[in-house]
Design a protein around this nucleic acid. Structure first.
Length: 802
RNA sequence: GCUCUUGUGGCGGAAUUGGUAGACGCGUUGGACUCAAAAUCCAAUGGUAGUGAUAUCGUGUGGGUUCGAGUCCCACCAAGAGCACCA
């Protein structure tokens, strides 16, 4: 059989019959399966893409046969740095490169027979799409959720370019290797931090995998604690945030951040201004160095002339500057308790500061400070006046209450998650639709003027001072103020790559809508995304951004649900045959096109599903791939055994019902490898028969169809059945999946000693009798005393002897 | 350092969630078919001892709970991923 022709034939059939087009408002129950739309890189489709697409394709095909109106769309996340880099290098407009790449990707996807609804295809770079990304940005702005702020960015002085954190890893520019500096830049921000609690809370309304939820929780990074006011000798005060208020009697100094506002406010009263200023400058340079290595020792200096007053003991306490305290977290100042905090301990050691132990048990001084010991039961407070003797948990409550009553503290939550820096000084992104007018300030564009098209340029490099190349196109930049009509300038920054992917799943529900980003009716009809599949690398940030975006749209009444994604799963990577991540430099890359050419699409699909646990990484193995090819050939050969008959062979009936149940359940629960294994078992069972009925063969082909759609359609047609893609999924009879007779083990003292065969409804006594009559079991029991017998129906018998 | 994930044959991996460990596939060995090869088919295949029935050990390590542990609990070891001074 020529698989190339077969594949082509059925791909054409599906295309012509529009087999996979989802219909909005259909009476069938809706089911939305989403795979992350890819970035169409020049490298083409990766075998890793094939893994997740095949998995969700199998689910989609099965669900369709089960009578669902399945939405399984595909599109392109095509803005972003790689296309721009390519453009800079080759002087081709990214638009052109993207167009080419999409063509390649789409061709590859079609050759694999994925049942995407291509009528809903779009790219984030289509003006019809990014018009709505821009429109949604304006909604953020109009609801006070977007603002401009001056924030430090990674700046490469050599490349004269703003770098993302990824490109500046280790404090070194990825391209040229020079040290990255921090540069202040005015950027658009989205107020994501204010959604921290909602984003945590919303997880309740999702069915994300546990590790995905954890990723979200860790990224948000919530800490419960107390914000404490501290008076300064001679007037004034500042606040600190702590999660360990019970250690308040152990404070021996305070530390404030060199990059925060507080030190600037205190500056007029500082006696050693030179020293302090120098340290602040040093931090600015150093913070770019990523603060990772070299930085173990705690640097800083005392702020002379300013002393804090301990809120309870009223003693004078010195204040220090230290870069281990971050200016943009909490209050930018901490209370230092060196006996019970590792960082404070190191700082105290480096600067010869006093330590007071306030919790019995191990302190940092005795080395091996461990949170567990510290929080463990039996740890009691010492040196803490009336709180001495309380446990840590008790003291936390009591001291908080005292301070709150005194009016100098309040319970607060802090989050690691910051606001979203939303500007990029790049060309290949959605232009931010804002206009700056000298009189009116920042003014949003009129919504009816959208989309703001990305103009064509000849130079894609950022400018000398790190501005987007758009800033060089003066006739694009210069415009008039939508408010007062005077001369004004456009924003030249573009949106980050994350923007377009934060709402694409909504657009798929209603992709051709010219009046709205998606109609409420369409979104209500489809409801939440039932399955969202993507890589582990996107489970933290992309998912968080998308959820934030949706929650905002929900709050302003534009989407029907606060969470629009129900289940999120992540697939494991396909590694090279040497067990390392596939990469060109390692020469272990497998190109799916080659495999399709040599083995066929169905074999590749089967292999990638059979390769192992879907959520786990797995190495490529060509021998195993051949095994799957053998399986396909076996199924083809089975056709020679087919005889007339429109019911299951009696001998095969039970295993067929079992297999239907197994394939159905496993396909629904990511057990693709075991689903295929059970199909192999069924195939082997059929092979053992001298003949099988048409119906036997048909059911095998139907069950295998979601995984190997081309060959199964062809074989099914050859025995005179109508196409599987237009048929329904077989139904199993639970009664028939239960064996009448079952062989169970007999243990003596928990060790397997024999086997007995019992019938489905056999009584305990009869089972035990069989067990005791088993020769091997008899030998082991001998004359010994029987203490106890355990009979678990259909599972096992255990006889305990002494 | 912290968080998470994973440790089962020569390899990828199963195990109905506490009940016959190693399903299925790969590989290997022997055999059949063939002039030969490929393809296909049959048989064997966790270790050790034994001709053998069989015995014994065995799911990273050490303990524990249980009639019974790959699965639950405690401690540890190793690999991978992510976060990285978040008070």
């Amino acid at each position: 059989m020529n698989f190339k022709e077969v594949e082509q034939k059925w791909q054409n059939y599906w295309h012509e019959k529009k087999t996979f087009e989802a219909i909005n408002g259909s009476e069938k129950p809706p089911y939305y399966i989403l795979v992350e739309f890819p970035y169409p890189s020049g490298a083409g489709l990766h075998v890793g893409h094939v893994r997740s697409y095949t998995a969700q394709d199998a689910l989609a095909r099965m669900k369709r046969m089960q009578g669902y109106n399945v939405l399984f769309p595909m599109g392109w996340d095509a803005f972003g740095a790689p296309a721009e880099q390519y453009a800079i290098k080759n002087h081709i407009h990214p638009k052109e490169a993207v167009k080419e790449n999409i063509k390649t990707f789409k061709g590859q996807m079609e050759s694999l027979g994925f049942s995407f609804d291509w009528s809903r295809e779009f790219s984030t770079t289509d003006p019809e799409y990014y018009k709505w990304t821009q429109w949604q940005f304006l909604q953020f702005y109009k609801h006070g959720m977007a603002y401009k702020a001056t924030v430090p960015v990674n700046w490469c002085p050599n490349c004269k370019s703003v770098l993302s954190n990824e490109d500046a890893a280790g404090g070194v520019c990825e391209r040229c290797g020079s040290f990255v500096e921090q540069k202040e830049k005015s950027q658009w921000m989205l107020k994501m931090a204010s959604y921290a609690e909602d984003l945590l809370d919303g997880l309740k309304d999702t069915n994300f995998a546990e590790k995905v939820k954890l990723g979200q929780i860790n990224w948000i990074g919530k800490s419960k604690g107390v914000e404490l006011d501290v008076d300064i000798v001679g007037g004034g005060s500042f606040s600190v945030f702590t999660t360990c208020i019970e250690t308040i009697y152990g404070i021996t100094f305070f530390v404030i951040a060199p990059d925060g506002k507080l030190i600037q406010e205190l500056m007029p009263r500082v006696e050693n201004k030179d020293e302090v200023m120098e340290y602040i400058e040093k931090t600015k340079r150093k913070s770019a160095m990523d603060r990772t290595d070299l930085n173990k020792e705690k640097s800083g200096c005392e702020i002379k002339g300013i002393k804090a007053i301990h809120p309870i003991t009223k003693q004078e306490v010195p204040i220090f500057l230290g870069d281990f305290v971050l200016g943009d977290y909490g209050t930018g100042a901490v209370m230092a308790v060196p006996s019970h905090d590792e960082r404070d301990f190191e700082y105290a050691k480096a600067h010869n500061l006093e330590m007071i132990q306030v919790i019995d048990g191990r302190s940092t001084e005795e080395k091996a400070f461990e949170k567990q010991d510290y929080l463990g039961v039996g740890c009691k407070l010492i040196n803490s006046e009336e709180f001495t003797g309380l446990t840590v948990e008790e003291a936390k409550k009591a001291i908080t209450k005292k301070l709150v009553d005194m009016g100098v503290a309040r319970e607060v939550n802090n989050y690691k998650m910051r606001d979203w820096i939303f500007s990029r000084q790049r060309f290949w992104g959605e232009p931010i639709p804002m206009i700056y007018c000298d009189d009116c300030g920042w003014v949003p564009m009129n919504e009816e003027d959208l989309p703001l098209l990305l103009p064509d340029v000849t130079e894609y490099e950022p400018t000398e001072d790190g501005e987007s190349p758009l800033s060089k196109i003066t006739d694009w930049v210069n415009t008039t103020c939508p408010k007062c009509g005077k001369k004004a300038r456009r924003e030249t920054d573009t949106m980050p790559n994350w923007a377009g992917s934060s709402w694409y799943f909504l657009r798929f529900m209603d992709p051709h809508n010219t009046k709205e980003f998606a109609s409420m009716d369409a979104m209500k009809y489809w409801g939440k995304v039932d399955w969202y599949n993507g890589g582990m690398e996107h489970t933290a940030r992309h998912l968080l951004y998308a959820r934030f975006w949706v929650q905002f749209l929900y709050n302003i009444g534009l989407v029907p649900n606060k969470e629009m994604i129900w289940t999120r799963v992540s697939h494991g990577m396909i590694l090279g045959s040497n067990n390392e991540k596939m990469s060109k430099s390692k020469g272990n890359v497998v190109n799916p096109d080659d495999v399709v050419k040599e083995f066929g699409a169905d074999t590749l699909r089967l292999y990638e599903m059979f390769i192992g646990d879907y959520e786990q990484d797995a190495p490529w193995n060509t021998d195993s791939l051949r095994g799957c090819k053998r399986f396909v050939d076996k199924v083809i050969r089975l056709k020679d055994k087919v005889k007339e008959g429109d019911s299951y062979s009696p001998k095969l009936e039970s295993i067929i019902h079992k297999t239907i149940k197994k394939v159905e359940n496993d396909t629904l629960h990511l057990g693709f490898n075991t689903a295929i294994s059970s199909l192999m078992i069924l195939t082997n069972a059929m092979e053992d028969e001298s003949s099988i009925t048409k119906e036997d063969y048909h059911v095998l082909l139907t069950l295998l169809n979601p995984y190997a759609p081309h060959i199964t359609e062809e074989l099914n047609e050859s025995i005179g059945y109508s196409p599987i893609c237009e048929s329904s999924w077989p139904v199993y009879d639970d009664e028939k999946t239960i064996d009448q007779e079952v062989t169970i083990g007999v243990q003596v003292n928990g060790k397997l000693r024999g086997e007995i065969t019992i019938s489905k409804e056999e009584e305990k006594d009869s089972i035990l009798e069989k067990a005791f009559n088993n020769e091997k079991v008899k030998n082991f029991i001998g004359e010994k005393e029987i203490v106890k017998t355990i009979v678990i129906p259909n599972k096992i018998v255990n006889i305990v002897i002494k």
